[in-house]
Amino acid sequence: MRFIVVMMALMMNVACADQTPPAAKEAQPVVVPGDSSLAMEKLQQAFPGMPVAAVEPSIVPGMFMIQVQGDWLHVTADGRFVFAGEVFELRDNEGAVSLIEERQKAVRVPALQALDPAQMITFPAKQQQAEIYVFTDVSCGYCRQLHRQVADYNSLGITIHYLAFPRGGMASAAGRVMDDIWCSENRQLAMTEAKLEKPLSQTPQACDSPVASQYELGEQFGVRGTPAVFTTEGDQLGGYLAPSRMAKALGLVIAD
């Protein structure tokens, strides 16, 4: 069902595309509101095997929101129309608010807060003003570009927390390398070597690698390419941003 996600892709900034081939996932039990049964029946007829993760009423009258592979669809109660993409509400004093992004943030914030710091690879700023969570892939050119500038981000007060997102899936070469990185004694060194396209100088140890769970988290967040950058408030800043632009996007004041 990857084509549904592609339909919804409104990529911002610069990122390497997700290369994961379409794969059917085992369906999990989903609580379906009774009055959405007709919509769900027609949706499943049109897209057999669609991996629906959640169904809930939308604030748009007569519509439901359906979560599929980390993204949200809007469907009418009669199942006649499906909308894949942004839906905005024009609110007094707030302007246009994306219902999709608002719902995604409600998923992301608690998930980010629940992350174990020991499971991330962090490059901390000495005088931290902001933190970003970056889903990364060692085979991605823009990820390498971001990493080459880690010191510049840090100097602006930006701490970088890396999470793994091998675009080709866990069985890809990048997925195997990232397992080795997370199972290295010095993860920072291993990450830097991989991003510089150098062989890893450390022998990976047997460990319970978090790469697979972080990859799944990225899918839940709607990640479709790397680097995918998120703030602690759950906002997605897009893909690669140069250090000064990243600081501006985070609302940091940069001295001239």
Results as ranks from 00 to 15, higher is better:
V138H: 05
V138Q: 02
V138L: 09
S139F: 06
C140Q: 02
G141D: 07
G141M: 03
Y142F: 11
Q145M: 08
L146S: 09
H147A: 00
H147E: 09
Q149V: 07
Q149D: 13
A151Y: 00
A151L: 03
D152P: 11
Y153F: 10
N154G: 09
G157E: 05
G157Q: 00
I158K: 01
H161M: 04
Y162I: 03
Y162M: 12
Y162K: 10
L163N: 02
A164D: 03
F165Y: 11
P166E: 08
P166I: 06
P166M: 10
P166Y: 01
R167E: 05
R167Q: 07
G168C: 05
G168M: 00
G169R: 09
G169N: 13
A171I: 04
A173S: 13
A173T: 13
A173H: 13
A173W: 06
M178C: 07
M178L: 10
I181S: 08
W182M: 08
C183T: 04
S184K: 07
E185T: 15
Q188T: 10
M191G: 09
M191V: 06
T192F: 11
E193M: 08
E193I: 11
E197S: 15
K198H: 14
P199V: 10
L200W: 03
S201V: 10
Q202G: 11
T203C: 13
Q205S: 15
Q205A: 15
C207A: 05
D208M: 03
S209I: 00
P210C: 06
A212S: 11
S213E: 14
Y215S: 12
E216N: 14
E216S: 12
L217K: 00
L217M: 13
E219T: 11
E219H: 04
E219Q: 11
F221W: 05
F221K: 01
R224P: 01
G225H: 02
P227Y: 04
A228P: 00
T232K: 12
T232N: 12
T232P: 00
G234Y: 02
G234V: 02
Q236E: 13
Q236H: 09
L237A: 06
